[in-house]
Structures are given as structure tokens and as C-alpha cells.
Design a protein around this nucleic acid. Structure first.
Length: 596
DNA sequence: AATATGATCAACCGCAAGAGC
DNA sequence: AGCTCTTGCGGTTGATCATAT
């Protein structure tokens, strides 16, 4: 067992060999890596692939522990790493992702090809400190962070409540993480909260007062465009044009803990009251309203996956636009954000094109100074650009013969949808009721429910047994030992943006079982979200959620599907009828057959 | 020029999940 | 079921560089 020395990390002072630790006679080195060590590690990975990091020391004599090797590889040596500052688009994407995910660096990194979680984390912490010192809000006013939507009066109760909930180890773990994030975020999003006990060294700032900066009067207001109030359950995008970040981001994760046991969790919170007060007192905008935010849900990922496989969809990837339920940024508001008096490093880095990158295969965002976005401000044109991936920037010639399935899971890129989102103009989309993919959009705010029901219907009709074990939906690679073709195809999808080899680039390559499994699992989560939405929003008041416990929450989708007859048209119809009579984004579970 | 401060980077740590036995 | 090992994640720390005073 490696016995690390106490205290924090940090590089050695002499550029390398400061801390030596003993591992059963083997002296393991700490501190900065040397070029020779890098070469040893790279050669090892080149030959053996990633994984089994502890074997590196055994097989190569490299005096580094496995953890250190893995970190070094993932953050510095692996191919396709982007070096250099974040581009402006990347920065904005980080902000949006953080608003959605919190301190989920690895998941954010998955959205930023070539970037590591460590980079993002460092960037964010630096930004955090800077903005806090300057009294600026962390997020532009148009980005409503997940946690900021949380109702304050319940936060402490929830915290206490969560501490009492330790029924499920898995759940408890994620609750701890949520608590952790929540705790941190509380520090700067809860103006009236008491100062938490934070280490002085923490980059996290103390609470930012509501009016911390007169130059940012909208810091804590909720400027929520009406267009953004479309039911985020809907798999269809609102009329609001998609920002590049929205196009790139994937939907936020499903609730990791039981949404019913924690009805006011962080995922789908209700609106804090302080903002209302602030808005009432400080916002002079006569048109300002304080609409309740939409139920914070997203299109069922299962549906997204299903639609990927729709060969008739003109753009396979376009459907995977995030509804960004916590950051409904309209184009206008997006540009307004860009013109905020932020001392943003964007101005220094937005034109960075990664020209110094040593990796020819490194993907880079090509900032297309397109004029397709209406320029409403005097900001530079590139700030209005949208992602336009340059196919020529993805010439992949991997340095190492690394197995794709062995790439770090946090670097598996999501299927991005930068391209061709503007095939239709906004007006065209609106006039034709099209979403960004050109698919007709339902106007129903209950469309998610409909979709869930439809899926349940399909599943019920199929009547086949499904694996009940939940699979982690995060884009983690399959088991290393499983080198079947399915995995190959899986990664053909995942790495489509990286690899120019012929076997890539279509989600249709997903094998049916993969797709089914994905759908099944995502549907479970969608249902959980739906339930959570009902319990959390407070607008579904039939009491269903109050009697649902953790035990019966973990229902297999088959069970859910079995609740419906094979022909559940009536159910969907009833739901539609319900919706037609209710513009309040509500769907009552009482309207569903089999759930009463 | 010396010092202080801030920003960035790279590395460490502990913890937890998952796989395998 | 319980243990061990591996892996991954998020938080933290300290060195180094840049800039301001």
C-alpha cells in the first residue's frame, strides 16, 4: 500500500524529485513529471493501452503510482488534448454547463473535446475568485443556474433532511455530492444565508450580496423571456434560437437521488423568493414579470436516442439540442450577456485558434463570424458566432495506438449538434412550427408525458423482457474487456467527431440492444424526472407524489409500461385533452390509467 | 528593483463506485 | 456477502509566472 505523505499536493520545488514515498521498498516519486517519465509512460500506453495504471510502475520501473500515471496521461499526454486558453465559446459553454451541472467537471469536460476536467476546474475556480472579488455575479443574468432556482426556505431543511436519508448507499453518495455542491453554491447564491464555514483557502467566495455591484443590477433578477417558459419536458426546442452552448450541451443529468424522497432537491427546484423581492424592489422594468419558471425537465433522453436512429431526420445530431432547462438563454439575452461589463478573458482568447497545438488531430472550434445571428449589440462579430466545426480540423492521426474503448470516460465527446442548426431562420422555424431539426414541434406542454406514454405503449406492446439493472448513463466506455463489435460501434458514435475513419459518425450504428438498453434506462430516469417534476413544482397537487416512496419509485419501466394497455391511445388522448384544458404546464397523474 | 497580488497550472489527496475474486 | 483492487471524480494545495504597486 502506498503511503502518501500528509498534507496537500503541489509540485516539488526543484522541478521534480522532492517527495519520495516508499511502497514496499519501491520509491515512488511525486511532483512534476520529467520528459523522460513522460516518454516512459507514453511508450507504455502506446504498447498496452490505457488502464491498469498500477502495472505501469511494475512493468516499466517508472517510479510513479498508478494514480499519478493515469492523471498524467489523461491531463497531459493523451492525444487530442487541446492546449492553450479556452476559447470564448468554450468559456461560455463552461458557464452554461456549470449552471446546469454545478461542479461536475468531468461531465463538463465531456462536452469540451480536448479539455480536461482539471482545466475546467481550474478555469472555473479562477473565474470564481475573480468575479467574486469584483462583486460580479457568476452567471450572466440570462443563465439561471440550477441551484439558484432552489427555494431558500427549504434549503436548510433539505440539508437536514438529506442527512437523515441514508437508506440507499448509492443515493446517499449522490446526495452527499449534491449537498456538497449545494453547500458551495449556497455560499454565493444565497445572499441572505449565513456565512458557511469555509476554508480560507477555498476559491469559493463568501456570499455575494444581492446588490454587490451596482453595475450588475440584474445579478439576481430572473429575466425570463416568455419564450423560455415552454415546457422543458418537451423534446422540442422553443422558438428561442439555440445558442452555441445550448447546441453543444447535452441535457442535464437525471436526478441521481430519489426525486420523491427529496421533493425539493437541487435538480428541479422552485423559484427562490429573494429574487422576487429583489425584483420588486429594484427592478424598474415595467414589463418585468415574475413568471414561474418552467418545470425543470428535459426531453427524454430515450427519445433523443430514438430520434437519432431516425434515418429520416435530416440531421441526426441536431435533435440532441439541450433544452437547457436551467439556462434558457435566448439569442437576444445571450448577446446581452456577451456585452456585460465582464472583465472576461474572452476578449483575449476568443480568437484563439489553437495554432500552437502540437497535435494535428486536436479538434478545434472554428469560430465562424457568421452574421446569421442578428447583431443587436456592438459587440464583436465573433461573439455572435456559432459553432461551426471545421471538418478539416478533425484529421485524426492518433499518436498512440490506443484502444478507443480505453479512453477516459470523461473524454468521450457527446454527440454535438453544432452544424446546420440554422438551416431555418428563426422566423421560418416559428412560422412552420419547426424545431431546430426541422421536425414539427408539438405545441403541447405535456409532450414529454406524451412521449413517455408513447414509449410505455411501445414497450408494453413489445412485451419483451428487459434488463432491469440500471446502467450508468454517463458516457463511460464499456468494459475494457469487452471488445466486441458493439463496443466498437458504440465508440464509433462517441468518437465520431474525432476520428475520421470510415466506420464512424452515425448514431445509427448503435446496435439495437444498445439502443434498447439506453432507452430503457433513460426512460426510467425520465419517469423519475416526471415524478419529480410533479412533486417538486407543487403544481401537481393530486397527492400522488406525497405517497410515493423510494421503494416504489424504483420501478422498472416494464412495470410502468405494464400499467398501460398495448393500445394506450386513450391515455395519450386523455392527456392531450387534459392539456388542452390546462395551460399551466400541468399533467395530473390522476389522468393516467393504472396509476390511480 | 523589490514586493505584493493575482492568475494559471499541475499535482496531490480522500472518497466512492464498480469489477473481480 | 465481503474483501481487494482499480478507476474516476471533485477538492485542495503549492509552484510559477505575470502584473501592479
Amino acid at each position: 500500500m502506498i503511503m502518501y505523505g500528509g498534507g496537500g499536493g503541489g509540485a516539488g520545488k526543484d522541478g521534480g524529485s522532492t517527495n519520495h514515498i516508499s511502497d514496499g521498498g519501491v520509491v515512488l516519486k511525486k511532483g512534476p513529471w520529467t520528459a523522460a517519465e513522460d516518454e516512459i509512460l507514453a511508450a507504455y500506453v502506446r504498447e498496452n493501452g490505457e488502464g491498469n495504471w498500477n502495472a505501469v510502475q511494475k512493468n516499466t520501473g517508472l517510479a510513479r503510482c498508478g494514480k499519478s500515471c493515469r492523471l498524467r496521461w489523461a491531463n497531459h499526454l493523451r492525444p487530442n488534448l487541446k492546449k492553450g486558453s479556452f476559447t470564448g465559446d468554450e468559456e461560455r459553454l463552461i458557464i452554461q454547463l456549470h449552471a446546469q451541472l454545478g461542479n461536475k467537471w468531468a461531465r463538463m469536460a465531456a462536452q469540451l473535446p480536448g479539455r480536461t476536467d482539471n482545466e475546467i476546474k481550474n478555469y472555473w475556480n479562477t473565474r470564481l475568485k475573480r468575479l467574486h472579488r469584483q462583486g460580479l455575479p457568476l452567471y450572466p443574468p440570462d443563465i439561471i443556474p440550477n441551484h439558484q432556482l432552489h427555494p431558500h426556505p427549504h434549503q436548510q431543511q433539505q440539508h437536514h433532511h438529506q442527512q437523515q436519508q441514508q437508506h440507499n448507499h448509492h443515493q446517499h453518495h449522490h446526495q452527499q455530492q449534491q449537498q456538497h455542491n449545494h453547500h458551495h453554491q449556497q455560499m454565493y447564491f444565497q445572499p441572505h444565508s449565513s456565512q458557511p464555514n469555509t476554508p480560507s483557502s477555498s476559491p469559493l467566495p463568501s456570499p455575494t450580496p444581492l446588490n454587490a455591484n451596482a453595475n450588475s443590477p440584474s445579478s439576481f433578477t430572473f429575466h425570463t423571456p416568455t419564450a423560455n417558459l415552454l415546457h422543458p419536458l418537451s423534446p422540442h426546442t422553443p422558438n428561442t434560437p439555440q445558442t452555441p452552448s445550448q447546441l453543444c450541451s447535452t441535457p442535464p443529468p437525471p436526478p441521481l437521488s430519489s426525486p420523491l424522497s427529496s421533493p425539493r432537491n437541487n435538480q428541479y427546484p422552485t423559484l427562490p423568493l429573494f429574487a422576487l423581492q429583489h425584483s420588486q424592489t429594484n427592478n424598474n422594468d415595467a414589463n418585468f414579470t415574475f413568471p414561474r419558471p418552467p418545470p425543470l425537465l428535459q426531453p427524454p433522453s430515450s427519445l433523443l436516442a430514438k430520434r437519432y436512429n431516425n434515418a429520416n431526420t435530416p440531421l441526426n445530431c441536431i435533435n440532441r439540442v439541450s433544452t437547457a432547462p436551467f439556462s434558457p438563454v435566448s439569442r437576444e439575452s445571450y448577446t446581452s450577456f456577451l456585452t456585460l461589463p465582464y472583465p472576461s478573458p474572452t476578449s483575449q482568447t476568443a480568437t484563439y485558434h489553437n495554432t500552437n497545438n502540437n497535435y494535428s488531430s486536436s479538434p478545434s472550434f472554428s469560430l465562424n463570424p457568421s452574421s446569421s445571428y442578428p447583431t443587436t449589440t456592438s459587440s464583436p462579430s465573433y461573439l455572435h458566432s456559432h459553432y461551426t466545426p471545421s471538418p478539416t480540423s478533425f484529421h485524426t492521426s492518433p499518436v498512440y495506438s490506443m484502444k478507443q474503448e480505453q479512453l477516459p470516460s470523461n473524454q468521450i465527446p457527446q454527440i454535438d449538434a453544432y452544424n446546420n442548426i440554422n438551416n431555418f431562420t428563426d422566423n421560418e422555424r416559428q412560422n412552420h412550427n419547426l424545431n431546430s431539426s426541422g421536425v414539427h414541434r408539438r405545441s403541447s406542454s405535456c409532450s414529454l408525458l406524451e412521449d413517455v406514454l408513447e414509449e410505455a405503449e411501445v414497450l408494453a406492446a413489445e412485451g419483451r423482457d428487459r434488463p432491469s439493472k440500471r446502467r450508468n448513463l454517463t458516457a463511460s466506455p464499456p468494459n475494457h474487456n469487452n471488445n466486441n463489435n458493439d463496443n466498437d460501434n458504440f465508440f464509433s458514435v462517441s468518437f465520431g467527431h474525432y476520428d475520421s475513419s470510415d466506420n464512424l459518425c452515425s448514431l445509427q450504428d448503435l446496435k439495437p440492444q444498445e439502443d434498447e438498453s439506453l432507452q430503457m434506462n433513460t426512460m426510467q430516469e425520465d419517469i423519475a424526472k416526471l415524478l419529480d417534476w410533479g412533486s417538486d413544482s407543487g403544481e401537481i397537487s393530486n397527492g400522488q407524489s406525497s405517497v410515493v416512496t423510494d421503494e416504489n419509485l424504483v420501478l422498472d419501466v416494464h412495470q410502468f409500461a405494464s400499467l398501460f394497455p398495448a393500445d394506450s391511445t386513450a391515455v395519450v388522448t386523455a392527456t392531450n385533452d387534459h392539456h388542452n384544458n390546462n395551460n399551466n404546464n400541468n399533467c395530473s397523474w390522476g389522468d393516467m390509467q393504472g396509476l390511480s
